[in-house]
Each structure stands twice: as structure tokens, then as C-alpha cells.
Design a protein around this nucleic acid. Structure first.
Lengths: 278, 278
DNA sequence: AACCGTTGATTGATATCCAATCTTGTGGTT
DNA sequence: AACCACAAGATTGGATATCAATCAACGGTT
């Protein structure tokens, strides 16, 4: 078993990926130490890990916050992601064996079935996982970790943007990339990867001001089922401060289903995919 | 300015890059806390940062050690480095302006002059810096950080290998890469980058058993400026206040001053090139 | 020499305390 | 009412002391 700070860092990472902790959210040491029932120092170590991963930023004497990347940084992250996946594509086109191609095709097929059966949430997850499977086939753990870190950071962006374009035409990209690569048309495959990611970034309009829909205690509750006191939660939930405006903003406080690791928007909009390349 | 744990992590990183702390070296909490005159907790936080960076590994209940990558991991690191630099090359061939090409040429020229004047140490540093300059011109800070981290990890490898081949034919690679890229011969440039790195890895024979030539206290002494005060200089250049250096070893370890992949380059000391792509 | 238990050292973690800094709220002034 | 100064409170960064668990080395026994 790894250290407790690592465990807590993992939980916080999970919560951020699930959009239960949104960019800008304050991660107070005392608050988290009470939530996780550990000392402040363990929390601090966890926050250092998160900051090293680019998911949090620590301001001296002010504390830690969930990272809030700028538009510039968002583009850089996607550029890096494109660069990595193009490079992996080039490697795979040379070195991947039949079993590898089969695995890619199988994954695409599973996603296709999910879409066909209307299971948008599953399709969403599979769509995200495709990129990880892709990189995993390079059999380079160092590269995998770099890629995974970049992907985690893209999840931050999805809280900050208003994705207002159609993702349907992206759904086939994975299949087409596999086709092109297996046929040796590397250049076209790489261009498609670039287009794939650029289409996502183009849809980004980072004008959204995010605010916490729930306190960290509420956000983290689903992950604490293990041992800590899930029954007694005497931590009074306070309303997120509205910073001056009389809370006149007409936002809907939707509490995501607790144990569901797949963030999905409600049926109000048809657009289930909130931004990651499907 | 920044936290003390960050300052200490920086110093430890510097010492590892300078090969004053070699792979496998134990990084005891109490020992380091006495060396830096801080509490164990601050040391622990610094070690967490190092581990996240891949420069140290922490084993539960056994402590932290300078990371000792396997041959497999070494190849993965160089593969990743190749992938990143090839990708950056592709970007630069499209987007780099005249000023960028000029900077690259200027850097190559400086290295050429250093070689011509017999200043091997300076040539060494410039040769290593070329790769960082190259990536910096992509103007992607995220990519820069990924690249810098990979480069740091390659320095670990140079302690573990016996480089027994000729590096002379690599000295011109940088110049040739710039030439090829500026002429739009991207494919050839990328192949050269691959060859460049492969030549290095091929020379690796990781059979060396490294042993610490000095204790951490001796290894870190040059970085301990008057006090652990971070306000003055995050990384203090050499200051041989090292007291009793009577460590029996005939090795002369001198610190290479360097701060950021930014401007300047003040080289100083002599250190044999043990394998980084020149 | 091989085996096994004890002892010491080190790590992981907590609680408590303190200084520095940031935030907030209050009150006086214009 | 708006505005500034200042004190009070809260939070962070860090130090110290302490404790249990684990690991490693040592020494005794067979």
C-alpha cells in the first residue's frame, strides 16, 4: 500500500477528473484534513503531488486551488497531446503487430456499439480511453505517463469551456485513424489526429466563469466510502460564496450522481461529449 | 520566495544532474534535514517532488533513493525524447521565423567555436543546451517542461553507463538538423534526430555498478550558500566553502552553473562528456 | 556455518505550537 | 455614502516532539 498522501492525491485527482472539483476551487488544508481525517501535513503532501501533476496550483501563503489553465495553456496542452499522439502513430505504423491492430479495432467496435445502443456515457468513456489504449500499444511506460498526465489536464479544460459545436463528425475519427495507419498512410493519419484535436480546441470558448456547485466535503464524499465515517458528516455545508453578485445568476445546481465516474451532462442538451476528442 | 521544500528539491535536482548524487544513493530524511538545517517534513516534501519528477524513488518504510533506471526504462526515455524532438522539429519547420533560425544557428556557431578553441567543457554544455533551445522555440511551455524532465532523467543514465564510442560524429548533427529543417527536408531531419539519439543509446552498456564517491553532505556542500535562505539565490553557484574535503577520492567535482533554459551560458568547469548527445 | 530473535535505526504519521502573511471586518474620515 | 486605515481573525508554512510500524543489522544458539 502506498503512502496516505498518495492515496489522497489519487482521490483528489479522481474528483477533479470527474468535475466534482472545478478549476479555481480552494483546497484548504484544514478542510481537507478533516474530510480525509488525516493531519494537515499529509494533505499538504498530497497537494504538492497534485501541483507537480499540473492539476493544482499552490500560491504562497494563500493555499492550493484546482488549476485553472489559461486559453494559452489550453492550446499548449492540446498541441503537446497532438505531438505525442502523432509520434506514437508513427511508431505504431512501423512496429505494431496484428494483435495490436486487433485491439484497436476491437476498441473502436465497442465504442461503435455503445453509440448504436444509445449508451452515450459508455461511448464517452470509451472514446476517451481510445487515446490511452493507442499510446499503451507503444509499450513505452514513460510516454504513457506523459500522455496520461496531458489527458488529465485536458479534463480541467472541459470545465472551463462551452462546447457548442457538433462532435458527431469526430466519432469516426478513431476508426479512420486505425484504417489509415494500418494501410501505411501515416501522413494522412497524422493529419487526421491534428484535425481531431484542433476541432476540439476550436470549439473552446473559455469565457465561462466556473464556481463550485458543492463544497469539497460534498464533492469528495463519494470517494470516502471505504473506512472513514460516511455516516456521520457533521461538516456543515455552506453555500459557495457568490463574491458580490447577489447570486442572481441563473445557474442550475445539479448534483452529479454519486458513484458515477463518468461525467455526463443531463439530457437537456443533445451534446453529451463535453470536449474530449471522442 | 518559493517554498523551502521546492528550494531543497531544486538543489537535490542540481546535485543529481551534476552527478554528485549518483543513482542508488540513499537520501535519508534525517541526514538531509541536518544538511539543510530544516525539519524532516520539509525534506520529505522535497523528496516527493523529486519522486514525481522521476529522479528519486521512494520505497515504503525504506526511504528515498536516487532513481536507478533500468535499461528498458533508459530506452523508453530516449524513445520519448526522440518522439518529442521530432514532433517539435515538424512544428518548427512550419512555423519558425527568421529570428528563430538565427538563434539556432547562433547557438550551433557558439558550440563550434567552443570546440575549435578546445573548450570542451563549454562545448559540452552548449551541446546539451541545444536541445532545450530547440524545444523552447516551439513556444510551448508545457512541451518544454516535459522535455526538460526527460533530459533530466537522461542525466541519471550517464552515471550508469560506460560510454565507449566516439561522439565526434555527433558534433555536427545539430548543424545538420538546422540545415535540413530550414531547407524543408523535414523527413531527413527527423531521421537524423532519431539516429542522433539512437547512437547514444547504442553506446550504453549499463553494467556499471555505481557507488557513492562521497556522502550526501559532501555532495551537497557546494550548493549550501551561507544559509538556506532562498531569497538570495535559488541555486547558488559553486562556493568551495567545502570544509574538510579530504575524501580520499582523487575526483574533482565542480559545479556547472546554470539556471534556466533561458539566455546566457556561463560555463566554467571541466567535466567529461559521458554520453549526452552533443 | 546456518538459523533465529532482539535491538537499534528509520520511516510514516500525528499533535501542538509559533511566526508570517493574507483576509476580513470595523470604524473613523471625508 | 464612499474610502481609507487599522486591528482582529483565519490560514499557511514551518518546527518540534512523540509514537507505532517496519526494516536492518547484530549477536547468540544450534
Amino acid at each position: 500500500m502506498s503512502s496516505r498522501s498518495q492515496t489522497i492525491a489519487d482521490i483528489l485527482t479522481r474528483a477533479i477528473i470527474d468535475h466534482r472539483l472545478v478549476p479555481g476551487c480552494k483546497l484548504g488544508e484544514r478542510e481537507l484534513s478533516e474530510i480525509f481525517d488525516v493531519s494537515r501535513i499529509v494533505v499538504r503532501q498530497a497537494l504538492i503531488r497534485l501541483a507537480d501533476d499540473g492539476l493544482a496550483q499552490i500560491e504562497r501563503n494563500r493555499g492550493a486551488f484546482v488549476a485553472k489553465p489559461s486559453m494559452q495553456e489550453a492550446m499548449e496542452i492540446y498541441d503537446a497531446l497532438t505531438l505525442v499522439e502523432q509520434g506514437v502513430a508513427a511508431q505504431l505504423s512501423d512496429r505494431l503487430g496484428p494483435a495490436g491492430w486487433a485491439e484497436l479495432r476491437q476498441h473502436v467496435e465497442r465504442q461503435r456499439q455503445a453509440v448504436a445502443s444509445g449508451n452515450d456515457a459508455l461511448a464517452d468513456v470509451l472514446g476517451q480511453e481510445f487515446h490511452s489504449v493507442f499510446v499503451r500499444l507503444s509499450r513505452n511506460k514513460v510516454m504513457q505517463e506523459i500522455h496520461a498526465q496531458l489527458v488529465r489536464r485536458t479534463t480541467l479544460l472541459r470545465s472551463l469551456i462551452t462546447a457548442d459545436f457538433d462532435y458527431c463528425n469526430l466519432l469516426d475519427d478513431h476508426s479512420r485513424v486505425v484504417d489509415l495507419l494500418e494501410k501505411g498512410r501515416l501522413k494522412q493519419a497524422m493529419d487526421l489526429i491534428d484535425t481531431h484535436h484542433r476541432a476540439v480546441v476550436r470549439g473552446y470558448i473559455m469565457d465561462r466563469e466556473v464556481y463550485a456547485e458543492m463544497t469539497p466535503a460534498e464533492a469528495l464524499a463519494p470517494y470516502l466510502d471505504g473506512k472513514t465515517d460516511s455516516a456521520t458528516a457533521p461538516i456543515a455545508p455552506r453555500k459557495p460564496k457568490t463574491s458580490g453578485n447577489g447570486d442572481g445568476t441563473a445557474h442550475v445546481h445539479v448534483h452529479l450522481p454519486k458513484q458515477d465516474p463518468a461525467p455526463k451532462s443531463r439530457a437537456s442538451t443533445k451534446k453529451t461529449n463535453r470536449g474530449l476528442p471522442a
